[in-house]
Amino acid sequence: MATAEAIRALQDRFPELNLIARPLVTYADGRASDQLWIRVPPEHLHDVARFLHDDPRTRFEQLCDLTCVDYLNYPDAADRFGVIYALLSLTHNHRLWLKVFVNDPEPMVPSVTSVWRGAEWPEREVYDMFGIRFAGHPDLRRILMPQNFRDYPLRKDYPLTGEGEREDFELVTRESA
């Protein structure tokens, strides 16, 4: 299986990181999902990404998606934010997920825009929604929320109804208009 070979190549190249591939989900009947993820320490993310992109055995040419999960209330979670990189190889037709865990108060991950240009907007979106900064991003601004927005709305401690944004706007009544 091509994914297993790619993971072996990655483990051979970075033996000191102790990279282990785990299935994304294990079903109740004991079957494991065919989708695998690897935990990567943030300081080595750039090297790992560059290797996965360039090496002929892995050839992950495309960053299919980049997102984040706030594991605040998640069962058995040790870290708060997991930035998730969904990699896709068109040559070998396989996928692999990388997870980089970061924590408060200053969640910071190196940007992978120098490896995959397509990471530019997804990284901005993760910054906008979760407040995770990407070191080395060419233009890290809010993308969906207005620039004067204070909070990070997809964090689990941010309520569904919002937090005080309505009070910022003056109430216009019939008399005052």
Partner: peptide, 21 residues
């Protein structure tokens, strides 16, 4: 079960996928 999954379809615009936790 507790876990995560991704599935994508080829829709008219391209790869429309959902990553569920």
């Amino acid at each position: 079960p507790v876990g995560e999954a991704y599935f994508a379809n080829e829709t008219a615009n391209g790869e429309l996928g959902y990553y569920l936790a």
